[in-house]
Design a protein around this nucleic acid. Sequence first.
DNA 1: TTGTAAGCGTTATCAG
DNA 2: CTGATAACGCTTACAA
Lengths: 344, 344
Amino acid sequence: MSEEPRKRRGSGRATIHDVAKLAGVGSITVSRHLKKNGYVSDELGARIDAAVAQLRYVPNLAAGGLSSAHNKVVGMVVPNISGPIFASTIQSFNDTLNRHGYQVLLASSYFSAEQEENAVRAFLGWSPAALAVVGRFHSSGTEAMLATAGIPVVETWDYAPRRKPIQVGYSNREVGAQAARHLLAKGYKRIAFVQNSVAGDLSALDRRDGYATVLEEHGLEPWTYAPTEAAPFDAGRQALDELTRGKRKADAIIFANDNLAAGALLASQRAGIEVPRRCALMGFGDYAFSPLLLPSLTTIRPPGREIGEIAAQRILQALGALPADPKPARLNLLECELIEREST
Amino acid sequence: MSEEPRKRRGSGRATIHDVAKLAGVGSITVSRHLKKNGYVSDELGARIDAAVAQLRYVPNLAAGGLSSAHNKVVGMVVPNISGPIFASTIQSFNDTLNRHGYQVLLASSYFSAEQEENAVRAFLGWSPAALAVVGRFHSSGTEAMLATAGIPVVETWDYAPRRKPIQVGYSNREVGAQAARHLLAKGYKRIAFVQNSVAGDLSALDRRDGYATVLEEHGLEPWTYAPTEAAPFDAGRQALDELTRGKRKADAIIFANDNLAAGALLASQRAGIEVPRRCALMGFGDYAFSPLLLPSLTTIRPPGREIGEIAAQRILQALGALPADPKPARLNLLECELIEREST
DNA sequence: TTGTAAGCGTTATCAG
DNA sequence: CTGATAACGCTTACAA
């Protein structure tokens, strides 16, 4: 006896119809019961549960999303996944959304606006319930897609008050100011700022501006150095060389990130430049190695984990999956913590 | 004039039918043209392209997947996303699959077999084209789902020759042996192994076994220490204390990972224990801070990036999206690099 | 080379 | 409380 040759075959997995047949109910009743919101009698419910277990039924989420025009998917674009900066944000964002039944789609832009645009376009194909990106600098194509997508959009890390998307992050200007104030309070006068060697890191420029503003307020002249070396450690070493050997000598240096600062710190040991006595160094990021260096590195810790968690919460609230906070906007502007260690 | 009230509304986005209507062709012709495999005349193709651009049409991938029973989605479960260990694997896995039009779904198990099972179940709801997990230790439920899913499954990091899923990784036993041989070659005799303070890290036990085997081959007695402190740095300090202050004194210690080794290294500075003269230390993982410590840490670097990339390639090959390698199985067993620095 | 019809697995709608 | 029916947007099968 040959099987009925079906015209076309699906995935081969059990469907809601199989469950319904086995339980002796209509398939819509199964759907309602599994959603736990519809009204299904206890008796049918038990029969359905048994059938689900027996068939190892797993609902097809793509089909459900197609039908309800509401996919439980959220896309997130970050500059990179593996760096020490965004990893904790990704983790908490992912975990928080997973806990509410949402799947996160990830893509990395490598600080390229074009790759970011491609990623957003790819996400849109999954009709996501929401999108998250990093920062406020996007291509015009990306801006257009985000604006017309008709779904909640969150911009993370960089808090820009006036923008349309939900903002969850901190003020880079304030971070730069924070660093400058710390060094001024410690009595340093000739304070330089070293930019990132990686082009495209526009947030570092905001920190520089915050630093510059504070210095000017105190009647001091801002002093920015842009390394030409590409590798962060080399760039840090180069900056230390230039800023301590010239005719004008820095007594404190703020680096765009901890990688640069670590490069300078290692170079200082070899060059015999005492830190912080001859020159204080501080970074940004509080990477894992920063407390382990000798001397340990003073730095500013951005709230990476919190950003991911709060961004996810704001999305869930916008989608109605979580009750809204009373005053959410204020709570989205987070603080960075200055961690004073031995290098200043 | 009121609009025709449609019975139900979809996402509101342009569909393939809108494109077809605007281009004056059948919707199936649009589908074929967009796939670039069907035969569509240049003229119609151009009209379709114009309509796609005008409507900003983005194909609904969930609908396509539902129809073709083949979603371009791959799920990956890792113990954690943000740690220094798996981040690079996630990155390269994700990037490689993205490049071929696949979306990666991510979930973290936090070393819990139960959470891993939940994640795999959630993935199955997306009818993924393939799944990737870390290691070979899973709950029986997970094993059953992986076995009956009918899709390619890759186990990463831990290379276990005889298992059914595709293996991409290295041998932890060999890593432990490698470390032991390095220290023996350097003349150390009283070599101890410190286990991970985190339960559930079964791969560290394999490294211990490899270490033990080599020591026995050389007529030496293996010596394992299990810290009771939970935090890695504390556990490392504790291990150093115990192994150097007792009546039996270690002259070299292999740690289950660089975090533990770093904790010991920092403690050694404060306790005035000269490394490596009085006791050599080595770790595993080559974390970002390891070359920056003083003395810098000898360690073994696992091929995290390569694992992600090769795992993705094997999946693409199994799916026919990439030509198969001549002898893939052999190429999946990767080597770890021993990086000798100052601490040994 | 192009089009028609049917169906993928689910849920919204409406009727019992 | 339960169920039939018709979408959701796309692709396969088949026909022209």
